[in-house]
């Protein structure tokens, strides 16, 4: 835990040292928010048919899209955080120094995820707060259920991220898994439009993505006042993703670390 907090502190210090980068992130948040705002205004007060599942005639695209953007942001961070952390450490030469300490390799790989994850949580809260200020309607009757959905969703995506990290440890520059999952999630997961707008075969394909189930559960809680019983199917799928992918990722990361220690390529990039 101490080591993980050290990563959080280190990355916060590094992030604030890049002042323009920090400002750039704030600008990205503002531009994304206003893009969604103007999209919602363009659609007007009458929701498209595909959106009615999320609130009937009173369905609100603004809230629907903001949840999509905020959740996709958080899950993308869990997907890319470890891969980016490893790539960065390989490139700047700190990976071998960290792995030469007694800290478990899992901590060195997962540590770089914490700061971006905390920062994406701040962005998600900002999206929801700004959205509420600009007229979006969210319900937060079940904060525990919301936390549960977020936690399990993040675990499922982090497992995919760990698989990507294992690939990056071995391949050094080429890591197709997380880019593929992120691209498909943005396209099919229902971030900016309901999956019901997709052809039926793509709806079926989208079931294979954790983001699809995470958004389904989050919107049920935040837009339809759903409780635990309503989100159980999504939660079950997300849990299965987390357990199965987590086990595979644990094995793959262990094998990848053993391989780079055997090959002597820990410090390569």
């Amino acid at each position: 835990m101490r080591a993980l907090l050290a990563f959080l502190r280190r990355d916060a210090l590094e992030a604030t040292a890049y002042k323009l980068g920090f400002l750039g992130q704030l600008a990205t948040l503002a531009s994304t928010f206003f893009t969604v705002t103007f999209l919602a205004r363009m659609l007007g007060d009458v929701p498209p048919p595909a959106l009615r599942a999320w609130g009937g005639p009173a369905a609100d695209y603004f809230g629907f899209a903001l949840i999509g953007v905020a959740a996709a942001d958080m899950l993308a961070v869990t997907l890319h955080g470890m891969v980016n952390g490893i790539r960065w450490a390989q490139a700047v030469g700190t990976l071998e120094a960290m792995l030469a300490t007694p800290a478990p390799a899992a901590v060195v790989l997962a540590g770089p995820l914490l700061y971006p994850l905390c920062w994406s949580l701040v962005r998600a809260v900002a999206y929801v707060a700004l959205g509420t200020a600009f007229g979006a309607r969210f319900t937060l009757d079940e904060p525990f259920v919301l936390g549960l959905v977020l936690g399990v969703s993040l675990c499922a995506n982090a497992a995919l991220g760990a698989l990507g990290a294992a690939t990056m440890l071995l391949a050094k520059s080429f890591e197709p898994l997380t880019a593929l999952v992120a691209g498909l999630s943005a396209l099919l997961g229902g971030v900016l439009y309901p999956r019901e707008a997709l052809p039926s075969w793509l709806i079926t394909a989208s079931e294979a993505l954790p983001l699809t189930h995470a958004l389904e559960a989050l919107r049920t809680v935040l837009l339809r006042r759903g409780g635990l019983s309503e989100i159980l199917p999504s939660l079950a799928v997300l849990s299965a993703f987390a357990v199965v992918l987590g086990a595979i990722a644990w094995w793959a990361v262990g094998r990848a670390i053993a391989r780079v220690r055997r090959d002597g390529t820990m410090g390569w990039y």
């Binding site: 101490r2 080591a3 907090l5 050290a6 990563f7 502190r9 280190r10 210090l13 590094e14 040292a17 890049y18 700047v92 030469g93 700190t94 071998e96 120094a97 960290m98 030469a100 300490t101 007694p102 800290a103 901590v107 060195v108 410090g267």
Partner: peptide, 26 residues
Amino acid sequence: LPEERSHFYRLTVRENLRFFASLHGL
């Protein structure tokens, strides 16, 4: 480590040492 690249360049000397001390469980 012989490589001088193995430090965090944007952090201070003390912050670098603090970080690595934490990886030693301190």
